[in-house]
Amino acid sequence: MTENIADDPSMDPGAATDLADRAMAEAARDGIAPREIEEEVDSVFAVMFEAVTNRSGGGSE
Rank of each mutant, 00 (worst) to 15 (best):
M1T: 07
M1S: 12
M1D: 09
M1K: 11
T2M: 03
E3L: 02
E3V: 02
N4L: 05
N4I: 00
I5H: 02
I5A: 02
I5S: 04
A6C: 03
A6I: 04
A6H: 08
D7I: 07
D7M: 10
D7A: 15
D8T: 15
P9F: 09
P9D: 05
P9C: 04
P9Y: 07
S10F: 00
M11I: 12
D12C: 15
D12I: 00
P13G: 07
G14Q: 15
A15F: 01
A15R: 04
A15C: 07
A15I: 03
A15D: 15
A15N: 04
A16I: 01
T17D: 07
L19I: 06
L19C: 05
L19V: 02
L19F: 05
A20S: 09
D21Y: 12
D21I: 12
R22S: 12
R22P: 00
A23Y: 04
A23C: 03
A23P: 00
M24H: 11
M24V: 13
E26P: 00
E26V: 10
E26D: 14
A27Y: 05
A27G: 05
A28L: 06
A28V: 03
A28Q: 13
R29S: 15
R29Q: 10
R29C: 14
D30T: 12
I32Y: 02
A33M: 14
P34N: 14
R35N: 07
R35H: 10
R35E: 13
E36V: 09
E36S: 12
I37K: 00
I37V: 13
E38Q: 06
E38L: 10
E39I: 10
E40S: 11
E40I: 08
D42Y: 08
D42W: 06
D42M: 13
S43F: 15
S43Q: 10
V44E: 01
V44G: 00
A46G: 01
A46K: 05
V47W: 03
M48H: 02
M48A: 06
M48Q: 08
M48C: 09
F49R: 02
F49S: 02
F49E: 06
E50P: 00
E50V: 07
E50W: 11
A51I: 13
A51T: 11
A51V: 03
A51F: 00
V52P: 00
V52W: 01
V52M: 08
T53C: 09
T53L: 11
N54M: 06
N54E: 05
R55I: 00
R55C: 02
R55L: 13
R55W: 01
S56W: 12
G57Y: 04
G57W: 02
G57N: 10
G58Y: 08
G59W: 10
G59P: 03
G59N: 12
S60A: 13
S60L: 15
S60G: 15
S60V: 09
E61F: 15
E61I: 11
E61G: 13
E61V: 08
E61D: 15
